[in-house]
Amino acid sequence: MAVLVAAVLVLLGGSLGYVLHAQQRGGGHRAVAADASFTLDGPGVYYRDAASGRVARRGGPADGPSCERFYAAGDRALCLRALPGTPARTEAVVYDRRFTVLRTVTVPGIPNRARVSASGQLLSWTTFAVGDSYAVSGFSTRTSILDLRTGYLVKSIETLPLTVDGARYHAADVNYWGVTFAADDNRFYATVSTGGRTHLVEGDLKAWSARTLRENVECPSLSPDGTRIAFKKKVSADPAAPWRLYVLDLADLREHPLAEPHSVDDQAAWLDDRTLAYALPAGEGGPGSDLWSVPADGTGAPTLLAPGASSPAAVLTPRG
């Protein structure tokens, strides 16, 4: 019993610290709405500014809403906020292009991943229920999908019938995270963890099913042309630096590492078909993380996009 209690305390230590930190930030950076002039009408790279906790467009002020995680595509934006109090809860807020609130959903856990389909019609978020890092064994996640076309919310995609290595699979420890959507607004990719292993899965919303494609793929991000998956691959047992950023070709499932030498604990975002953006811990004692970019073909070198930033999203010119 003592061993069990100790293990739980280890798991919750990071999570509790994150929650308390979020609450402290909430005291200084209370949840505020976007300024009236802040919209998605200007194409560019949007991200969360660490100093203010608000969303900014690269080259402009941080006048967007306050978020812990952010993503935008099509005519929609998704903001995840850590709510005060315990147990940990997350508020998922859906906005239109002018940051009018369309829907708000409260779910248990700590904000972790946010994604919007290219059309803006499908949204997904992941929260941590236990622990605050994928490097911590025994963590638990909850991943939701919201379809704005019908208004239907899937609170947890763990109910998906799962096929692993060609066989129907059942286990109590199945966890999904890091959804990324295909252009057809039906297929999606995500990570599933079970039995101590992680897999890339391809999901089908209409068929309500998922199947594994490859092992050791976490936090996938589908390229705009739909041909490649950027992901973090576990390459080391060192909990301080376990991952490297890779790209997988879906046609032949061949992979290659990118030029970023540091461990990346993020769901990278495609700025275009050639470039990826991602967050790394801030340098020189800066707040939160810094935003970097790197070529997707494995060449070149990382480039600093924005200091004190995270949750990148490339927003295109409004349709029509």
Rank of each mutant, 00 (worst) to 15 (best):
L258Q: 04
E255F: 02
A237Q: 15
P261F: 02
A268Y: 01
T212N: 00
P242A: 10
P242F: 00
V247E: 03
P295T: 10
A301P: 06
L271N: 04
D249R: 15
G226D: 02
D225N: 15
T299F: 09
L248N: 04
E284M: 13
L245Y: 04
G226E: 02
S289H: 12
Y246G: 00
S289T: 15
T212M: 05
C219V: 13
H256A: 12
G286M: 01
E215G: 14
L291N: 00
L245A: 05
H262C: 11
L291D: 05
H256D: 06
A240N: 14
D238S: 12
E215I: 10
Q267M: 14
D297V: 11
V247I: 10
D290E: 08
E218Y: 10
F231W: 02
R214T: 08
K234Y: 03
K234M: 12
L250T: 02
W243Q: 10
S289V: 05
P281A: 02
P257K: 02
G286Q: 09
S289W: 08
G300S: 11
T227I: 07
L222W: 07
H256P: 05
R274I: 07
S223W: 05
R214S: 04
L250Q: 03
P220K: 07
P220L: 00
H256W: 15
A296H: 03
E284V: 12
R274S: 14
T275E: 05
P287T: 09
P287D: 07
L213G: 02
H256Y: 06
E255Q: 13
D265H: 14
L248D: 07
K233W: 06
W292R: 09
A279C: 08
D265Q: 14
D266Q: 05
A230K: 01
A240W: 13
Y278H: 08
W243N: 14
L280I: 12
S221F: 00
F231H: 14
G283N: 13
A259S: 14
D238K: 12
V235H: 03
F231S: 06
I229N: 03
A282P: 05
W270S: 05
D265G: 11
Y246I: 00
L280K: 10
S293T: 13
L222G: 00
E284P: 01
A251D: 13
S236C: 01
E215P: 00
C219G: 13
A237M: 13
G226Q: 05
A301M: 12
P287I: 03
N216D: 13
E215D: 14
P224F: 04
G286F: 00
P257L: 05
D225V: 07
P224I: 01
L253N: 10
G286K: 04
S221P: 01
P287G: 12
D266S: 13
G285T: 12
H256S: 11
